[in-house]
Design a protein around this nucleic acid. Structure first.
Lengths: 226, 226
DNA sequence: ACGGGAGGTTTTGCATGCAGAATACAAAAA
DNA sequence: TTTTTGTATTCTGCATGCAAAACCTCCCGT
């Protein structure tokens, strides 16, 4: 090689795993919106000390998952309908761009991977495996964002999506809505295959509108454990 | 009010001012892209100790202003043309949404304030006060984002814009481009006054395209101190 | 019984100390 | 001269200790 300087082994800070675990606890709802994040309790639970934990708080606060109350600690960022609606509106704007870019720039490999995930998702749907479905659904949307070939776009999308994701885990999906969502994904995949950017934009926009309704409904009717 | 819980006095963490100063140092280019952020040096310069400084690094990393290299410290996030182009594309998508929303939802007061800033900016232009012009220009675009009435949108816009802002401070503007930009702002204000969302979207998009060209040019021809 | 306040407890914010990783430098070998 | 290797120094990552702020409880006065 000529002047490759950056080592391929990406060394992560030692406690990055603990931070990821904390993020997951929030995303999955194990730590509910509004819950206080007591430093002492979390240090014991995560097996790290207060300094890296507090650094994690700052990180997650910037991601919008945690709210810092000066001198009163940190809480899991509350989810209110207004803020969620705003987030979804921004996601809509981003998806419009994604729709354009992904048809223009996505590699065939990337589309192939999305197709694979799509069929895995249909499998989860067929098994009525809601959890698996949500995960694959998320994965597809994230891959779409990545396949657009704009890293900033993908990261912004991922970050905003995180807060929506939290609601998803709280909610069930009506069978009708579930079936409809899968059909919408079928259409999205078709568009992607045909690289029809204009139509894809419209489909994504429609899909998001339905998702918005579904998410806001889930927020009103909280928590019915499966 | 009925059940407002949040105290109006916003207590900020004690060293928030120092963090803001660090952010400004980066935004204004006093700390250039790629510069190493040595903890010891910065603790002395900012008058805080390592713990809050490291927390600040994490915050600024999430904002995209700083890059963390595990076991090798932090550097000011490099500005490369590719990433900048990506950021500007996302900003474009956001501005499209802003254009829609601001015409539909902005209060007359908010528009009045933007108009005032606009004339201040024209004053700066008349005086060939480039620094004042940049500041007011930024202020106008931020106010537009805020006037759209979507806090998530405004924050996302502000964050992405920060990295573009850094280039702005590095660059001069050709007299022609400067005059043209002012004319574009005139048209934008007219549209806003008439609340013509469709045309505003188009104008903002065009304005951003010009800005993109200007920013990327500035990045190629670095630093000519005034 | 109820509101207000004093004291003690908990918790946050910050500074600092220590161990390990990375870097810089220099000397030696090719 | 160029490359390599050993060593010393610097710097990061983390744990912990201390002071101040917030919180909670209980007591007192009305």
């Amino acid at each position: 090689m000529t002047l490759a300087t950056v080592a391929p082994i990406e060394r992560r800070p030692l406690h990055a795993a603990a931070i990821d675990r904390l993020r997951d606890l929030i995303l999955q709802g194990s730590l509910a919106p509004g819950d206080r994040l007591n430093e002492r309790v979390l240090t014991e639970r995560l097996g790290i000390s207060r300094t890296p934990l507090r650094e994690a708080f700052k990180l997650l606060a910037a991601e919008g998952l945690v709210e810092l109350l000066p001198h009163r600690g940190a809480i899991v960022a509350p989810l209110n309908a207004g803020r969620l609606r705003e987030t979804l509106a921004v996601l809509g704007a981003l998806e419009t761009l994604i729709g354009e870019l992904v048809c223009a720039h996505a590699t065939d490999d990337a589309i192939g991977e999305i197709r694979a995930l799509h069929f895995e998702m249909r499998a989860a749907h067929a098994r009525r495996d809601l959890s698996g479905y949500f995960h694959l659904n998320q994965a597809i949307h994230l891959r779409l964002a990545e396949a657009a070939g704009n890293a900033v776009l993908a990261q912004t999308y991922r970050q905003l999506n995180a807060n929506v994701r939290r609601v998803r885990y709280m909610a069930n999906l009506s069978p009708q809505r579930w079936d409809a969502a899968v059909r919408e994904h079928d259409a999205i995949l078709d568009c992607l295959t045909a690289r029809d950017g204009v139509r894809l934009k419209a489909l994504l926009s429609e899909h998001l509108a339905h998702k918005t309704a579904s998410v806001l409904a889930a927020l009103d009717a909280p928590r019915e454990a499966a």
